[in-house]
Design a protein around this nucleic acid. Structure first.
Length: 432
RNA sequence: UCCCCGGUAGCUCAGCGGUAGAGUAGGUGGCUGUUAACCACUUGGUCGUUGGUUCGAAUCCAACCCGGGGAGCCA
């Protein structure tokens, strides 16, 4: 007997196959049960008839609870009446394990609290399966992209001895005798070391932010890709960010169209994302905001409404570069042409999804860096190794960090980043 | 930390001083192919907690707890 998955049913029309999955939904009439089977690869309608199963077995099949695990053997046929175009005429229905109680998640609407508390089950839902598949594609595209460009994957540590940037709140953990460690909020400093060793490197791992942010754009644990290149300028960084984003969009459109449809994504909007992406300076962006009747003073960082306003007029992500030096991290290089600004870039996703990338050129000069560390009240002793990178063959270099879940959120066109990670960790929510 | 909104059946919600409701899920019965099937009947509740006002509180007031959205901060 051929065992297959629902995604491959079209290759088995006319054959008898066995599918192994879970009962997703059921509709019944006197002589027919329509069993909708879900196996992770798709959903298919299986027909169980009274004529085949008889007076005893037929009602039993009609009583199988939702999400019971079942194996169905039957013949595959194309049928226009079936959702998806194929259906299976069941010859055998074997219940592997009947549900022991009523499955809590229905096909009707649910609230976020309930769904998040049942995340382990919510993941079985159609939209969530499509979303996780999309996430997988984005991860794969990113890794392929960097691999093809000769970046070495060098992962950064999760435990770190001190803050990378000092500004945001860190999760503190005990590290053996009396020592404190922190969960990383960025692998960037380590990637700078990696870039000096390998030329081009990237890390891709979880990062942790103990910020008390409760918005649709925030998670306390999220995944970030951080490439870093030696001998690179701000323009190189912006080119890299643009190429990577375009690669992701192209791959998603090429390979995950069916999932985008399940997610009810407006695909046309993604199709309009084309290089080159608009690049505007922070100063021009401020003028643009003021011109749009959106009062904003030069010197501050943009808030979420400002970002939405800025990205609203473009189809593609917009690159905003050369922010005031004061609002940026200590390691950002100052613009030699304008001392007030740093050679940094933020990429704002379209449709109000906000900042998905932050990066730029790093300060290569040892003394400037020392002053900057002091000015930010950071403990210099924690950064000795980092300063070493400037002592031994410092070069212009740069990179960026891309927030995976925000990117997936934008591509999928959904409301909240919490759905874009399998098990979200948020302020006041760490279960399941 | 601050500002708004909410907590009533397993779930989604209505009720907003006078006997606790609907849809859905569960149960029973019906239906020749359903598309979140449909039709009939039916089980199911310390109205978040504590205190107060009142003849009477799910409903009004206070405090607390829990959740949601947003600000700040960030990807």
């Amino acid at each position: 007997m051929t065992i297959t998955t629902i995604a491959h049913l079209s290759e088995h029309v006319g054959e008898t196959v066995t599918l192994r999955g879970w009962l997703y939904n059921r509709r019944s009439s006197k002589k027919l049960h329509f069993l909708q089977l879900r196996d992770g690869s798709g959903i298919v309608q299986c027909i169980a008839t009274l004529a085949h199963f008889g007076e005893e077995r037929f009602p039993e099949i009609g009583a199988i609870g939702y999400e019971s695990s079942v194996m169905i053997t039957g013949s595959v046929r194309a049928d226009e009446r079936a959702p998806g175009g194929f259906e299976v005429e069941a010859q055998e229905v074997e219940v592997v394990a009947a549900t022991t109680e009523e499955y809590p998640i229905s096909l009707k609407e649910h609230g976020p609290d309930f769904l998040l508390s049942n995340r382990h089950l919510w993941l079985r839902s159609r939209k969530q399966v499509a979303l996780m598949r999309l996430r997988d594609q984005v991860i794969r595209s990113i890794r392929n992209f960097f691999h093809e460009r000769d970046f070495l994957n060098i992962d950064a540590p999760i435990f770190t001895p001190a803050a990378c940037e000092g500004t945001t709140t860190l999760f503190e953990v005990d590290y053996f005798d009396d020592e404190k460690a922190y969960l990383t909020q960025s692998g960037q400093l380590y990637m700078e070391a990696a870039a000096m060793a390998f030329g081009k490197a990237y890390c891709f791992g979880p990062t942790f932010r103990a910020e008390k942010s409760k918005t649709r754009r925030h998670l306390t644990e999220f995944w970030m890709v951080e490439p870093e290149m030696a001998y690179a300028t701000l323009d190189d960084v912006m080119d890299l960010a643009e190429d990577m984003l375009q690669r992701i969009v192209d791959d998603v459109l090429a390979h995950r169209r069916a999932d985008l449809e399940v997610l009810e994504r407006d695909i046309e909007k993604l199709e309009r994302v084309k290089k080159p992406y608009p690049r505007i300076s922070y100063s021009d962006a401020v003028e643009e905001l003021n011109g749009a009747g959106h009062a904003f003073e030069w010197g501050g960082d943009f808030g979420a409404p400002d970002e939405t306003e800025l990205s609203a007029k473009y189809d593609a992500p917009v690159l905003v570069h050369r922010y005031p030096q004061e609002v940026k991290a200590f390691y950002m290089r100052r613009d030699p042409d304008d001392d007030r600004v740093a050679l940094g870039v933020d990429v704002l996703a379209p449709e109000g999804y906000g900042e998905i990338i932050g990066g730029g050129e790093r300060e290569p000069d040892l003394e400037v860096l020392r002053e900057r560390i002091a000015a930010h009240d950071l403990p210099e002793e924690s950064f000795q190794w980092y300063l070493d990178l400037r002592k031994f063959g410092s070069v212009p270099h740069g990179g960026f960090g891309l927030g995976l879940e925000r990117t997936v959120c934008w591509l999928a066109g959904i409301e909240h980043v919490r759905e874009c990670i399998p098990f979200p960790r948020m302020l006041y929510r760490i279960y399941p």
